[in-house]
Amino acid sequence: MLCSDSDLPAPPQEALDALCLRGARLLSGPVWAAAEVALAAPVVEAVALQGGRIEVFLRTPAAPDEALCGVLEDSADLEAALNVLWSGIDAILPEDTARTADATRRGP
């Protein structure tokens, strides 16, 4: 479900659960669906800044059941972080999903 940097203090499980729930509600469900209508585009990126930190949630259309979450200090360079996270998302997808994603990008 979630993994964290082992060099950092492990957050309490309830904090990880809340993070996971927030990501799920931002990238699926009624808020997400309504946002897709408002933007007239698939919503695959959610960013929340509160409590002195930035939470980033990414979802690739190639693996709609997966999402990548990153928690950054609020002084982080968000755009640079997003570039890193987007470029790395395929690398952490399961192998079969990655193959599907690759095939999707290449087309039939």
Partner: peptide
Amino acid sequence: CCVFLSDAGREDAIL
């Protein structure tokens, strides 16, 4: 506090 939702390319607008 703020929250943003956007498409992959953020080509048109962000919510």
